[in-house]
Simulated assay, not measured.
Amino acid sequence: MVECIVKDWQGAEVGQASLDLRVAKEESAAHIVHRALVRQMHNARQGTVSTKTRAEVSGGGRKPWRQKGTGRARAGSIRSPLWKGGGVIFGPKPRDFSVKMNRKERRLALRTAFQSRTDDLIVVEDFSDNLPRPKTKELVQAMARWGIEPESKVLLIVAERNDNVYLSARNISNLRMISASNLNVFDILAADQLVVTQSALTTIQEVYGD
């Protein structure tokens, strides 16, 4: 179990929150998190890239010159891969890059990745009421009060999307906001610091605490 300090909108410590997730064993933790990360990145690939072989390039049906007597190399088609405008040898074709991973393993990897970032975790009270209207400047100032470095890549995890919070956060270049239901290994590992609202932490504990 990990105890986290909870901060309010002004950056003052107002309590503690606990995080207790079942994680992978130390000797296998890095392996399972790496597998989950590779799976997520592979599954994000579209796999729609395509090139044409010499059979698919239009034209090239007529032999460009006779076989013998010209002094030039033999040629059967102007769409040979050796020619400009010809087909592509062993070029990429549409394919499925998806990688399978058991659901229990995915959830274990997610819990392990999240709990491994507790040193960079900042828990704050729900602050949607402090933003009655979208205001990026006020959110930036609040992040500074929470002790976040200006140049850090920040992952903001909320329980539910709030329009005022979303509109305030979207113009901050180094901030990514996701809901607790969209938690994923890549975003957890890519961020320098994680900011989690108290309700989001409760949701994570309830959903992934098995």
Rank of each mutant, 00 (worst) to 15 (best):
R133L: 12
G59C: 04
Q46W: 06
A200N: 01
F97M: 02
R35Q: 15
A24C: 09
I188N: 00
R145W: 04
V195D: 01
I78K: 12
F114D: 00
P81T: 04
Y208Q: 02
N171T: 09
V185A: 05
V123H: 00
F114Y: 03
A29N: 04
N182Q: 13
L131I: 09
E125F: 04
G87F: 00
K68D: 08
R111Y: 00
N182C: 06
I5Y: 03
I32C: 04
G60W: 01
I157F: 02
T118Q: 08
P150N: 08
G60P: 09
V140S: 14
A142D: 01
R107H: 10
Q193A: 12
S181G: 11
D187P: 02
W83L: 13
H31C: 15
V99D: 02
A159D: 14
S152L: 04
D119S: 14
V165D: 00
N184V: 02
A180R: 00
L110T: 01
V88K: 13
S168T: 07
A36F: 07
D8Y: 04
R145F: 05
G147T: 07
V195K: 00
R54N: 07
M1F: 10
F127V: 07
A75P: 11
P132N: 10
L167H: 11
L156R: 02
P92C: 09
L139S: 06
L121Q: 03
T112C: 04
G147D: 08
A24S: 12
S128G: 05
E160C: 06
F114V: 02
T48N: 14
V124C: 08
S80W: 05
A200T: 03
R54H: 06
T51L: 09
L201E: 00
N164F: 04
R95G: 10
A29W: 02
A44M: 14
Q46P: 03
D129Q: 13
G147L: 05
L201K: 01
R106M: 14
A24M: 07
T48L: 13
N43A: 06
I148D: 01
D192T: 05
V99I: 12
D8W: 02
T197K: 01
A55Q: 11
V154S: 03
V88G: 08
L156I: 07
D96A: 08
A36E: 03
V49T: 12
H42W: 08
E160Q: 14
I188Y: 05
S179I: 12
S181V: 12
S80C: 12
G76L: 10
D129Y: 08
V154H: 03
T112N: 03
G85P: 10
E160L: 08
D8P: 01
K135L: 07
L82V: 13
A17S: 13
H42F: 12
I122D: 04
S50A: 15
M1Q: 11
